[in-house]
Structure formats: C-alpha cells, structure tokens
Simulated assay, not measured.
Amino acid sequence: MLKTVDVIKDHRCIRKYLQEDVPDSIIEEIIVCAQSMPNSLNGQQTSIIVVKDLEKRKVISQLSGNQPWIEEAPVFLVFIADFYKTHKGLVVAGENQIIETSGEGLLVGAVDVGIALGAAVIAGESLGLGVVPIGGIRNNPDEIIKLLKLPPKTFPIAGLVIGYPLDPSRKKPRLPLNTYLYKEEYNRNIIDKEIEKYNLIMERYLKEVGRESEKNWSIFLSKFYKKVYFPKVQKSLINQGFEFSS
C-alpha cells in the first residue's frame, strides 16, 4: 500500500476517464475527509455540492469554458465558500454577521475551501481515482450560482472532477524546490535564473505530450495573467454579499 506522502507526490491531473460510476459510499468518504480538515474558528464555512446528473454536468462544462472532462467523468464536486451557514449560526446568537463584507472574509472562505479541496484530491487519489481541480466554474459565476441554487453569502470557489482514469497522464514538472521553499526570508535573487531553466524543461515536456502550442511556462501563463481572466467574479461576489466594505 502506498504511503500518503507517496500518493501526494505522485499527483497528476486526469482528463480522460472510464465510463464507470463512482459509488456513493466512496464519494461520501472523500467528502468526509474534506470536512475533517482544519478550518478557521471551526466556522466550517465550506460546503460541497455533488453533481452526478449528466445534463447538469454538461451545463457546468459549458459554463466553465467548455472543459469536456466535467461532462465525461461521472462526478463533479463544487466547493462553496459558505457564509450563509455561519450567518444562520449568528442569527441564533442574536448577532449580525458582517465578515463576508471584508477582504478577510473572502480570504477565510477561499483558504478553507483550498484546504478541503486538497484533502479531497488526496483522498480520491488514494482510493484509485483520478481528479482534476476546476477553477473555471468562476468563469460564469452567476449562472453557476443560479444552477446550484446557492443562497446569498455563498460563492463557488472551485470544482473537482472525479472518476476512474482511462489514461494515467504524464506528471507535470514543477519549478525547482528552491523557488518554493525558503529559509527565514524570501530569496528573489534566484527567481529569474530558475524560471529560464524551468521554461526549457517545460518546452521539452510539452513537446513530449503533444502540447507544443503552449510553448513554455512563461508564455502559457502570460495568456491568463496579463488580464483578469475571470472578469465576472468581482461583480458576482458583490451580488452575493461579499461587498469588501472593510
């Protein structure tokens, strides 16, 4: 049996899946793992919506930028920053919640979702499943909110495709560890040189997997980060009550 650290280090995103259902018991096991993770103040301001309905997954696939694996895999999880739940808790205490109107609130919600998402990835892979996280559900957030009937003070942060792999995929190279692990303080002096070397590594990798059009890490990333690539997010957040007034 693989150790947990081996499962984590062997992660790769899967975008081709067998047409095989994932039992509800396994999905629940994954979600229990996600729920067991730490969260700010034990506020538990995360919820997960399991989407198995094919027609709904087709819609989500289109709204997320036409990502076919959302439709092809049997299960899609939507991770929600959920301050509606905490709002209801404060109502019981006779108090008025305002945390979602602050930048801190958004960070709390996003961080807690990230922790839960990471746990779901590890749990799924440890059970022999393939996964791929989907940030594209923020591409058309108002439509996702309507489709999933999300209440105010909630927001869909990320999704996770889950299924049995058809193709194990190639593990993608990462930047060297010295651009990720720093001792005592950030070392900006190494970044330019390490990026140059990493771009060469990625060029070879992309050629090997038939994705030469992406060129390298810098060029691919620039297509997204030179603009706000999900421009509807801020307005949708405000509509949901994340007003950033403090």
Rank of each mutant, 00 (worst) to 15 (best):
D6R: 05
D21Q: 13
S25I: 15
E28N: 13
I31H: 05
V32Y: 02
V32G: 00
S36F: 03
M37F: 09
L41T: 15
N42P: 12
G43L: 14
V51H: 04
K52Q: 14
E55L: 11
K56F: 12
V59G: 00
V59R: 11
I60E: 00
Q62D: 08
F79V: 03
D82T: 08
F83A: 04
L90G: 05
G94A: 03
E95I: 02
N96C: 04
L107H: 12
G109R: 00
D112A: 10
I115S: 02
L117G: 04
A123K: 14
E125P: 01
L127F: 09
L127A: 14
L127E: 09
G128Q: 02
I137S: 05
D142T: 12
I145H: 00
P152H: 05
P152F: 11
F155Y: 10
V161T: 13
D167P: 01
P176Y: 02
T179V: 01
Y180M: 03
Y182F: 06
E184P: 07
E185Y: 13
R188K: 14
I190R: 03
D192R: 15
K193M: 12
R204N: 14
L206D: 01
G210I: 09
S218G: 10
F220N: 09
L221V: 14
S222G: 10
F224G: 12
Y225N: 15
Y225K: 13
K235S: 08
K235F: 01
L237M: 06
G241P: 08
G241Y: 10
F244N: 00
F244G: 05
